[in-house]
Design a protein around this nucleic acid. Structure first.
Lengths: 212, 212
DNA sequence: CATGATTCCTGTACTCAGTACATATTCGTA
DNA sequence: TACGAATATGTACTGAGTACAGGAATCATG
């Protein structure tokens, strides 16, 4: 994501970031439902229509920063080393993200405030679920493509759904652990323990298919 | 669900059903987003406020009939025969529902119109996901309770999430099969094949836990 | 550096979902 | 029948999101 040389593009990105940052801060402070779009526009010093220009839905302002991480799973399948099965590559990715302290599975003071904000709003939870399912679709397509089948292969869909379900539970459980123990190490352990259990199940479910 | 002897309750239920039926029909005909609450009220011959009296959200009118089926998973865990592990009971339930032609996993002309209606609306999809996650929470609690642990046991959450993910994929895949082959038998096969794969994975993920 | 085209920002006016609150109507019961 | 409770409904409002048009900043070109 290199800074574009255009001044126009840079300004646009700055405006977008200002809106997203302001909105996220307000959402965390007061809760999603107690912040109006007018207030966001006012606080970010832009017109109300500018907000909707950048973010078609109110909830998009909150999830704006996650865009980068959403290609990770896909890329892990595509650019896996020779001799590594697609599902194996995805299992390894989880460990790599933790080892590399990736922001995707970060258990920090900031994410500790993000999670309750989502939990406190039906709209944000709904958006989080939509993102998860959309991600599952993309992973399913990547898996199916990697093994050269039809892109709607049921086994690929099942594998992707199980994988995302596992990661979601693991992520939330790790956060819960972090909140209780204040230990990032224990949170990472909780995350990887559950991911490994899910991975074991995933492999068992996919025996007999070319995905494992 | 016996008819209440009260005339008052009967009238209330009749009003509710009239609204739900009218709304569902209109949603299927025109799509969720192209039907307004005013039109539903008009078509059902009730006041606009009566609609919101019965259904706090527009999308609730569509999912009103599914209430019965949502306790099935819970009950299967609670009332399982002695000597049957909780997860085993859930796997058996899927086969029993298919064998008994339960409306929960029905692949018929009616459900064939219901599924695309949901697929055509972000709002309805969001509600379907919310119902699924809520169900997963309840199943997780039932599992944890059945084995006498804390109600937030991570293994129970993982098991419930994997189970619901499996059922969702299986259900949609079976519908897709039905649409293409027009065969209820083939749809049932597709459903059970995927459920069994998921069940195998679920058991593998839960080895070493008291759930299997 | 001037000018025209492009892209971005913003205002106005609207539709529709959902809420708060008051009122009317219907029904069960004494 | 008369009273109290549950139900249906009307009015007035808030706030998200859309359609459309005007204006301002930026870029490309001569």
């Amino acid at each position: 994501m290199p800074e574009p040389s255009d001044r126009r593009s840079r300004k646009r990105l700055a405006t977008r970031k200002a809106i997203s940052d302001t909105a996220t801060r307000l959402f965390m402070e007061r809760g999603f439902d107690h912040v109006t779009v007018d207030e966001i526009a006012e606080a970010a010093d832009v017109g109300r229509m500018t907000v909707f220009n950048h973010f078609p839905r109110k909830e998009d302002m909150f999830f704006d920063r996650d865009e980068e991480g959403r290609e990770l799973l896909r890329e892990a399948v595509r650019q896996r080393p020779a001799g590594i099965a697609p599902l194996e590559a995805l299992c390894l990715l989880a460990h790599r993200l933790v080892a590399e302290k990736s922001p995707v599975v970060e258990f920090s003071a900031r994410s500790e405030r993000l999670v309750p904000t989502v939990a406190g709003s039906e709209t944000l939870k709904a958006r989080a679920r939509a993102i998860r399912d959309e991600l599952a679709d993309r992973v399913a397509a990547a898996l199916a493509e990697a093994v050269v089948r039809d892109p709607a292969d049921p086994d690929a869909r099942l594998a992707a759904s199980l994988l995302l379900a596992t990661w979601t539970v693991a992520f939330l459980e790790a956060h819960s652990t972090f909140r209780q123990t204040r230990s990032r190490a224990k949170a990472n352990d909780a995350f990887l323990t559950l991911v490994d259990k899910g991975a074991a199940g995933l492999k068992a479910a996919m025996t007999g298919t070319p995905y494992v």
